[in-house]
Design a protein around this nucleic acid. Sequence first.
DNA 1: CATCATTTGTGCGTATGTATC
DNA 2: CGATACATACGCACAAATGAT
Lengths: 242, 242
Amino acid sequence: MAARDLQERIKKLIVDRRLPSGAPLPTEPELMRFLGASRNSVREALKALQAMGIVEIRHGFGTYVGPMSLAPMIEGLAFRTVAGHYRGEDSLLQLLELREAVETGLVSRLAGRLPERDLSELTALVDRMDRQAEQGAGLAETDRAFHATLYRGLDNALLSEVLEAFWDAFHRVQRDLVVVPHDPWVTCRQHREILDAVRSGDSIRAEEAIRDHFGHVRARLAPVDTTDPQDPTRATMSAYDR
Amino acid sequence: MAARDLQERIKKLIVDRRLPSGAPLPTEPELMRFLGASRNSVREALKALQAMGIVEIRHGFGTYVGPMSLAPMIEGLAFRTVAGHYRGEDSLLQLLELREAVETGLVSRLAGRLPERDLSELTALVDRMDRQAEQGAGLAETDRAFHATLYRGLDNALLSEVLEAFWDAFHRVQRDLVVVPHDPWVTCRQHREILDAVRSGDSIRAEEAIRDHFGHVRARLAPVDTTDPQDPTRATMSAYDR
DNA sequence: CATCATTTGTGCGTATGTATC
DNA sequence: CGATACATACGCACAAATGAT
């Protein structure tokens, strides 16, 4: 029995029965009977679907319909970027430019259209960035929240998820791969400028602010590190070394 | 041994050895020894990596490093959209709006910056659309080529791939799920308008043209079909019925 | 063209770890 | 604590596909 068919038939089973995220799937023996395949085949099909985020397997408990998040996309993008990076490609830069290209376009549509509620939330986030910079703490999570809150105003959950996925993939790779000596105060100032520009409703200025922000990150990215992860004298610590 | 670990260690093996796309991976028995796991566990890990597009398995031949394409992302997006659609969500509309939001932003950056070579290629594509409309042939592939050629000017291979992935996911779902009675002449006219706007260098007009184009598709999408795929009287044919 | 070795695909049996009741 | 149900893991055997001899 073709393993490819098994995956398709399990997917069909989910849509046919209108199973929502979190709904329990038939147990492995039941799937074996239903699909007419052995345990190995069923398990391999489930593993593949799990990798795609379509099903969720909880040890000793059961299999369930997955959260349908874009987590697999993050994994795939991140690995693709890491592999390309070590092969000497500028894959990390490309990922950053992808974010820049998309976000510059989106922020101009947002300018002047954000409700006061979101604006004040963004203000609070930038304020928190200031405090974190003062304490020398990392402000990655706050940066993530800022971008997420900003594009929430576009009122498209899928779009928000995609942007967050791009953010996650980029920062995961950046954290594992390169040393970025960045000045937190510059980051704070740039986010405040983005916020001010959006609040003022000036599309051009908002685009410019986003471009400045990404340009700053890009500059810190220039001296890419492509040392061999097998080389014990390497300067960075990759997640793939564990 | 956690199956999750196996996947990570195979990924680490790929980056450590700098294996490019298409390079052969160790055979299953070799991986069993290298990873100290049973064949089933190794195979399940490989299946998951295959689903993510990281490895490619060819029956009776061997396993290879995958093409690192975004094909898995298309699969995931498409399934997520289909499942959401049958559950009564407007997931297909959201996917279309995602494309619209991203493309409106990008096309304004393109206006007036496309080399004559790309412009003439786009002209040829629109001409081909006209001929196909005349013959009553489908112009989906030409539409795909138009959008791909358009954003090639942004000079970011990753961005191009992502946009093509969005296109593929949307059209796969639309083709399988809903009946869209669309007028090919309108489509032709709108693409010509996009091309003219980009050629003239008018960013505003280019954005407007893209918005018109997507607006037309959105209008044809309104009467969503959520009939039960198990219902033999259904009007549409889903890919998940096979 | 046929045969062979190699490699992946499939199926079965069994033992172990883990969660729920 | 035991009982039960389930996922996890292992090992073996055979089938099917591919490329080379």
